[in-house]
Design a protein around this nucleic acid. Sequence first.
RNA 1: GGGCCCGUAGCUCAAUGGAUAGAGUACGUGGCUUCGAACCACGGGAUCCGGGUUCGAUUCCUGGCGGGCCCA
Length: 548
Amino acid sequence: MILSALRKSLLEKARAWAKAEGLPLPENLTLGAPPAHVAADISLPWPMAVAKSARKNPLEIARSLAKSFEGVLEIESVYACAPGFVNIKLTDSALRANLKAITLTPETYGHDEAAGSTPSVLIEFVSANPTGPLHFGHARGAAFGDSLVRILRRLGRKVEAESYINDAGRQIELLGLSLMARYQERLGQPAQIPEGGYHGNYLKAIAAEIKNGEKWKADDFNNFAMDRILKEQQRDLQTFRVHFDHWYHETGLHGSGAVQKVLERLKEYDMAYEKDGAIWLGTASQEGDDKDRVLVRSDGRPTYFLPDIAYHLTKIERGYGLIIDIWGADHHGYVPRMTAAMAALGHPPQQYKALIYQLVHLFRGEETVRMSKRSGDIVELREVADEVGVDACRFFFALRTPNSHMNFDLELAKKQSSENPVFYCQYVHARIGSIFKEAAKQGILGTDEPLPGPNARFLNSPEEKALMVKMAWFPELLKSCEKELSPHPLANYIMELAGLFHPFYEKCRVVDPANAEVSRARLLLCTGVRDVIREGLGLLGVSAPEQM
RNA sequence: GGGCCCGUAGCUCAAUGGAUAGAGUACGUGGCUUCGAACCACGGGAUCCGGGUUCGAUUCCUGGCGGGCCCA
């Protein structure tokens, strides 16, 4: 973890320096990756940031600061650069040590030492209605949430993934009635799917499994339909490599009296009030919401909002320090409401985050595909995963910020899948696999032999150094993902790392019996790249194949 | 009508307020008797428009234009 160690030493030096200079002490130092034309590994823009308040020329600050960094263990050279950067080149030995750290414990490289003190996190995502199969619209949220969970876990945070199941209410009655209609249809009886019911073919398939349905009551149809649909959803998510620690059922809230309890709690806190016979929550005080919201209608029926608050109260009560909801943009209007509700329950506002991802614009050629479960015109997650592949699909999502409005052409998706950048990254992994096979064949290094450390001194071409520096950034990238609460910086990083490997491969012959020591050193480098690519792809739910 | 998000290369997208705005793909030209050419090298191509803040704006503020979503 060369960069976090470096940041620590630099901050120490910089604070001592600032104190002596009478400048404001830096709280933190941002390490940046300089652009390609700059001959440096690390860059600090800090002098420019303080130049104004210090009333000094940023370049002079940078010069002076750079001087104070001389002698830091990991630094080969340090210099100031206009308009006010401090640029740093790392020593070969620091890079070598980092490379060894990767290859020794690749599965924990990137772990944050300070993770122990952070609160436990609950991330809720997908939470699809149990009234039909998962459609492609769910895929983005599923990939987003699952990758985020994996990355936070990799950093060492305590994270749990949860999906909420809306298995109560009118929609379930409609589902049961729709299934009943399909069943009667199967028996040749006249049947009508109710108004607002579900017309998808999946209910025909479920109806075909029913035995002795003539004795069933409404609840039996409800439960049978939900059970089958949930199993399908869970199977699809498994295929998509999305894992949940908990499935939380709404019915459990009603059964346990949690809904009633949260209402009493809100009244007790003086957050809920009665007006026109209904019970309201004062959400309008929350920025973004323009009016208060009804919790219980004047006829005594709760709105869908109330059980949702009850559900979120259980998240607080279960002891999570940070509560994250991941919703599609079609629910963004819900954010201020739930934020207000969490605040009303006394949960610290900075410990609740609702993340919104933009919906995927799906089309075939020129034609937009609308997702409507009720009409039955849906593109299932499973279909796309089967046709395009889980790897290509997940990497495609992982590359984009959740805020991007993506276009996804189903017609081109399959064609494009062979051009998907994921293969560019996976190819690196497969290529390295071949290199090791060749090395074993040539007797350079048995695959089980311990890797040599000191030989890394032979790694001094620009291509090799670029790879080592890039790998040193991996732990920082994971932290960026945490800061932005998005996996997309990692996916883009993997692309860049892969982009550095291919030219290395062209210029640097790895397996060469005439230069066994260089070969071993390069094999060590390859091991590091392979590990970082494999771990990185793994965090995105993408496989790292030995062969393609 | 109000709110949230977005507008970057032909296309799909990157870029904690930083240096010469990057990739993939498409297009053009080269490169396999040597570890996988699913690759590499080179080339042309881009910040929606107008103001403002800043030493510095794709990024922040503001007014338009265009699109997605939610609400009334």
